[in-house]
């Protein structure tokens, strides 16, 4: 479980009142899939970086499975919007890179890496260079790299944001399929409401100036979901209104806000 208590962040040099985000309380249960949505500037990427231990909060506490986060924690993998593959390594070695850094057993990892590539349908490109692959394939390699160390937590910062709509949809489905084999706790920052509705068990809506949590919505719908159906569309509509501050209340400072969406 990931727990955030009164977490605030500001960049060095920022004034006291100019927080990137402030007063963030959040609980992410084990093996759940949580999406964070919000307009740009609401600090959602920074929130992810704080949980990843790459940025330090200026107030509050972050813990993963009861252990306080201070520097990048074990068993947490990070995935970025860009594939950030190493151009000098073939695909397979890119996937194995986290194990190499950790000094782990590469022989066992190789089988796992090939299996992951197989599941993503790019096993035949294992010896190719990253620059020979399409953007979607590169991001699949990045996903395999994030999963090769069998993390219990997967933090994704707009992982499919740079992909075209079709590839993006396929990647979402692949991610869900991979999670069936090895369920991780997933926190995904996205700017796609649709993606959040289709993938997440729970959606955190953030608001800007200063960044804060506006609402947390449970998406208790059966899978696979389809935005052509009425219920997911209703959730997407509710999220849209929350993001653009057309509905709901902004007075949520006390306690953990939770909105139940009335399905139909």
């Amino acid at each position: 479980m990931i727990e955030l208590r009164g977490v605030a962040h500001r960049y060095p040099g920022q004034a006291d009142e100019e927080h990137t985000f402030t007063g963030v309380d959040l609980e992410i249960p084990r093996h759940s899939f949580v999406a964070v949505v919000g307009r740009s500037g609401c600090g959602k990427s920074t929130l992810l970086n704080v949980i990843a231990g790459l940025d330090a909060p200026c107030a509050g506490s972050v813990s993963i499975d009861g252990k306080a986060v201070c520097g990048p924690p074990d068993a947490v993998s990070l995935m970025f919007q860009a594939p950030t593959l190493l151009p000098w390594l073939p695909v397979l070695d890119n996937v194995l890179f986290p194990l190499r850094i950790a000094g782990a057993d590469l022989a066992a990892g190789r089988d796992r890496a090939l299996q992951l590539l197989e599941l993503c349908g790019i096993a035949d490109r294992a010896r190719a260079r990253p620059q020979q692959l399409s953007g979607g394939m590169q991001q699949r390699v990045a996903l395999c790299r994030a999963l090769v160390s069998q993390p219990s937590v997967l933090l994704m910062d707009e992982p499919f944001g740079a992909l075209d709509a079709l590839t993006r949809e396929l990647m979402g489905e692949e991610l869900l399929r991979l999670r069936e084999r090895q369920p991780q706790t997933v926190l995904m920052v996205t700017h796609s409401i649709e993606e959040a509705v289709l993938l997440a068990d729970r959606v955190v809506v953030m608001a800007p100036d200063p960044g804060r949590i506006r609402e947390i919505i449970d998406v208790d719908l059966p899978r696979p979901r389809d935005l052509a159906q009425a219920q997911p569309r209703a959730v997407a509509g509710a999220l849209r209104e929350l993001i653009f501050e057309r509905g709901g209340s902004t007075a949520h400072a006390a306690g953990q806000p939770r909105v139940e969406v009335a399905y139909d």
Binding site: G53, L54, P72, D74, S77, L78, F80, A82, I101, A102
Partner: peptide, 14 residues
Amino acid sequence: TPPELLRLARSLRA
């Protein structure tokens, strides 16, 4: 060196 590569390395505790 692209900062995102260094960030990746940092997230891997290199």
